[in-house]
């Protein structure tokens, strides 16, 4: 499956194909949607099952659910402050959804829905709209002073305001591109080295098999690295969301 002929098909893994037969084809239900539903199902199962027993001494699942909860709780409280508690459900859902998307994508044959800019950009736009609405709701018209620092000379306004505006509008772009680029780069590297294993291994006898262990070793290291990236990118997305929410709540 890795190497067709002599070429390396590194991008084929990101192609969307309809699943669930004729029904899926009719409504455009791709494997990306399937994995999103799977991620949501797994998160719900973890939280509901894990917390179901409410043991004082947590079992494994409960410990996992609790540490995820506390991790995000600390992050939200630390970044936004006490007013930020009401945003906790949002940040937590976002974090878990991206984390599970990244981790599910590392399983063999699985699809990584966070490797599509359409998905990450949609998530980033949701964050962007929420942040803007929160700022508008909490500060009203004072929100627009955000684009012009106090004390700056008025003559510079035509210069500063467009720049600040672009800087503000670039947030969803950088937020989505960061996640998308990391996931794509990681999966392309995995695929390329996996293809090397097959290509070298099928080359010539013992030498080929010995040679194939090199890219295989690289892939083992890469999988470990990708696990780190999966966590890190979900974390970065969530913490940047918290930072933006902090700016929206406190404005200056």
């Amino acid at each position: 499956m890795a190497a067709e002929g002599k070429s390396i098909d590194a991008l084929g893994q990101f192609e969307l194909t309809p699943v669930l037969g004729a029904v899926g084809k009719a409504v455009g239900f791709s494997q990306s949607n399937l994995y999103m539903l799977l991620a949501v199902g797994l998160i719900s199962a973890l939280m509901i099952w894990g917390m179901g027993r409410r043991a004082v001494v947590p079992g494994r699942l409960q410990a996992m659910a609790e540490s995820a909860y506390e991790f995000v709780q600390d992050m939200v409280a630390g970044q936004i402050g006490d007013e930020g508690r009401r945003f906790f459900p949002f940040v937590f859902s976002l974090f878990m959804f991206i984390l599970f998307g990244n981790l599910l994508g590392l399983l063999p044959y699985a699809f990584t829905f966070t490797s599509h800019i359409a998905v990450t950009f949609a998530l980033a736009v949701v964050v962007f709209i929420l942040v803007t609405l929160v700022a508008l709701a909490m500060h009203g018209m004072r929100f627009f002073t955000y684009f012009f620092p106090e004390g700056a000379p008025k003559a510079l306004a035509p210069l500063i305001i467009p720049i600040e505006l672009i800087s503000y509008l670039s947030r969803p772009v950088s937020l989505s591109v960061r996640l998308f680029a990391n996931m794509v780069a990681g999966h392309v590297m995995l695929k390329v080295f996996a293809s090397f294993v097959v290509m070298i291994g099928s080359a010539a006898g013992l030498l080929g098999i010995l040679g194939a262990t090199l890219p295989l070793a690289v892939n083992v290291a890469l999988i470990g690295f990708e696990l780190l990236v999966a966590f890190l990118q979900a974390y970065v997305f969530a913490i940047l969301t918290s930072i933006y929410l902090h700016d929206a709540v406190h404005l200056h």
């Binding site: 947030r171 950088s174 591109v177």
Partner: peptide, 8 residues
Amino acid sequence: VEVVSALV
């Protein structure tokens, strides 16, 4: 990423 996204 920050530079490129602002430029875009």
